[in-house]
Computed example of a mutant assay.
Amino acid sequence: MSGVITKAIQILDLLVPQGTEKEMSVTEIGKELNMPVQSVHRLLSSLAEHGFVAQNTSNKKYKLGLSIMKYGFLMWDSLMLRSVARPFMEELSQRTKETVYLSVRENAEGVYIDSVDSPQILKISEPIGLRLPLFNGASNRVILAFLQPALRQTLMDSFVWDDVPSLKPLTRSYIEQELKTIRDNGYAVTAGEATEGTTGIGAPIFSYENTVIGSINVAGPSIRFGEEQVEKYAGLAKKYAGLISGELGFRGRSRYQ
């Protein structure tokens, strides 16, 4: 299997444009990579099925497909998000004196991709790369709440509700009601779900395509998150998430309500 993957990657590398769009025939690719034409044809058929290459119907030659562009844009969005969000995260941490996380979605999980630590001795410090199901924790649940409804439904159906990795019991009916409340309020608040004695407040970040691509999360010891602080920090989280969204080109309300 690894050999097949290697050959497929070699074909994709060969088709990378050099200034202008590049098209090659099956025979040309086979000759360039020293592969049998039959093998090249099988690999191209599989790659085309998933949109990684496309065939020009006029000359029967192949070029890179839209799936490559899609994954490229996703990677660019992730890099751009982190770069744009960082100064706003630092300012939000300064104003709240709490830790601020930046999260994105990967399939059915939320992942921390950056953080700014609280200056206080008692603070929350979760590792970058931490993954949790999208229904678990404020930073993840707020992303789930603002996803396109069909995708959100698919993800909800995929979760194993009998084996929830949370310190608190979480049921599907509870999460569905929570998601509605989050969409109404524009932010999520959770306490003691992923880490005991902690509270998190998450707000969604939207892209120029008017879709949710991540969240920022103010997190700290629950003893510092009274009703007044939660209200204040929620307002700040929404403000800075909105500023980040604006920098990314978002110019309106999410259509996914």
Score class of each variant (00 low, 15 high):
N185S: 14
D13N: 12
L134A: 03
L151G: 02
S115Y: 11
S245F: 00
F250I: 09
F206D: 01
S115G: 04
T199G: 01
G110K: 01
T20A: 09
S93V: 00
T181Y: 12
G19Q: 09
T27D: 14
T154K: 15
L33V: 00
D163Q: 10
V84C: 03
I113R: 05
K238E: 06
S254E: 08
Y112D: 06
S222G: 09
I175H: 02
R152H: 03
G186Y: 03
E28T: 08
S45I: 15
G249E: 11
V40Y: 10
P204I: 03
E126C: 14
S125M: 11
L144M: 02
A145D: 08
G249K: 06
S254M: 06
G129C: 06
D13W: 14
I175C: 03
E49V: 14
L179Q: 04
E178H: 06
Q10W: 09
T57A: 14
Q55T: 04
A8L: 05
E126H: 14
Q148L: 08
L102P: 13
Q18W: 15
I29M: 05
R152K: 07
I11M: 07
A150S: 11
S103T: 12
P149H: 09
F146L: 06
G197N: 14
L102Q: 06
T190W: 00
R183Y: 04
L170R: 08
G192L: 02
L12T: 00
S245W: 00
R141Y: 03
L81A: 07
H50K: 12
F250G: 08
R172Y: 04
M75T: 06
V100E: 05
G214M: 02
K60T: 13
R251Q: 12
